[in-house]
């Protein structure tokens, strides 16, 4: 299935959206490995794996638990560590 990740913060430099292909029945936790792979070209300059691991995934109304099921066409937002105020 196809998932679109909307980026914020430190992920902005990799594009406003990142398209990922995931297996059917994938859950939120399953976004991380293909995301790291999709950003592999930047890994020499950035700690992509660390940034992805420290991030959470969300919709417009909630931060998603890791075991929430994903569906084809979902728009998910990735939230790196926050620094408001």
């Amino acid at each position: 299935m196809q998932i679109t990740l909307q980026t914020f913060g430190a992920f902005r430099q990799f594009g406003r959206n990142i398209e990922l292909d995931l297996n059917d029945n994938a859950k939120v936790a399953d976004l991380r490995i293909p995301l790291v792979a999709a950003l592999a070209e930047f890994s020499a300059k950035f700690d992509i794996a660390g940034l992805v691991e420290s991030s959470r995934f969300a919709t417009e109304t909630e931060i998603l638990d890791e075991d929430v099921a994903l569906f084809d066409g979902n728009l998910i937002t990735i939230l790196p560590p926050v620094s408001g105020g």
């Binding site: 914020f8 913060g9 430190a10 420290s54 991030s55 959470r56 969300a58 931060i63 998603l64 638990d65 890791e66 937002t77 939230l79 790196p80 560590p81 926050v82 620094s83 408001g84 105020g85």
Partner: peptide, 28 residues
């Protein structure tokens, strides 16, 4: 807000560099 709200800051430095603040990891 500093620990939970989805806000990020990109600091712009006098030396021309810019860097995203390290920030607080969100809970799930």
């Amino acid at each position: 807000i500093k620990h939970r709200s989805p806000v990020w800051k990109l600091e712009h430095y006098a030396d021309g560099d810019s860097e995203w603040s390290k920030g607080c990891e969100l809970c799930s």
